[in-house]
């Protein structure tokens, strides 16, 4: 196991399986944990239904209201930039699209590599900005836990190793690619046990939020 190729194959083979298994077990456990808790019946006379407002909120909450945008513009913009950047790199980079196709058989068109490259660079900068913000903003300082920094590190390393691998700045390449895959696997592994779960649960949370407000006649 000393060689770079063996390392790459380990990350592409057994380690990927392990990571995926832990991720899937963890995530589904987490979802089961949530849904099985259920909600108590609500006897109050509703003003409106829950489903539609809930679904609306799933989408509308993506955009900050003007007041919040004004008060936390840096936070919002930087968050937006790196989330979108991350998603573009994750879903629209050719090798990633092929990975998804290979795993699930679903394919979609990808972006030209230079575009993804630029987006990735911006994402990295935005991620650094989020860290600086977390370290300097009083609220974020106060509420941040070790987990926040751990998660930041993993996410940053996933993007950074991907960037380094793409530009072949680490040699030999199997090490670079292997590191990237390994970081992504670590991300997958910690995902269900950290705030990264929000990738999935935020849609549930938003729905509950929209449903609760919607029931009372407020579009949240």
């Amino acid at each position: 196991m000393s060689g770079s190729m063996e390392f790459l194959l380990w990350t592409k083979g057994p380690m990927f399986d392990i990571a995926l298994a832990i991720f899937a077990i963890g995530l589904f456990a987490r979802l089961a944990e949530i849904f099985l808790l259920g909600r108590k019946p609500n006897y109050a006379e509703p003003r409106a239904g829950e489903w539609l407002p809930g679904l609306r909120t799933v989408f509308t909450r993506t955009i900050a209201d003007p007041g919040t945008f004004q008060r936390a513009s840096f936070n919002v913009v930087v968050g937006w930039v790196w989330h979108i950047g991350f998603l573009i790199a994750l879903l629209l980079f050719v090798p990633h699209a092929e990975l998804i196709k290979g795993l699930f058989g679903i394919a979609w068109p990808a972006l030209p590599n230079p575009v993804v490259d630029l987006v990735t660079a911006i994402t990295l900068i935005a991620l650094v900005a989020t860290l600086v913000h977390r370290l300097t903003h009083p609220v974020k300082q106060r509420i941040s836990t070790i987990e926040d920094y751990l998660v930041w590190t993993v996410v940053f390393l996933v993007v950074l190793t991907g960037y380094l691998a793409y530009h072949r700045l680490v040699n030999p390449y199997p090490v670079a690619l292997g590191m990237h895959i390994l970081m992504a696997e670590i991300l997958l592994i910690i995902l269900p046990f950290t705030k990264l779960t929000h990738i999935f649960t935020t849609f549930i949370a938003r729905w509950y939020n929209g449903a609760a407000f919607g029931r009372k006649g407020v579009q949240s």
Partner: peptide
Amino acid sequence: EIDAPTAAFFSSCVHCGICAQS
């Protein structure tokens, strides 16, 4: 008191601190 929405909410918090701004 903990129910599904509570679990979903806590699962989702990313410590962005934007709630403080409101």
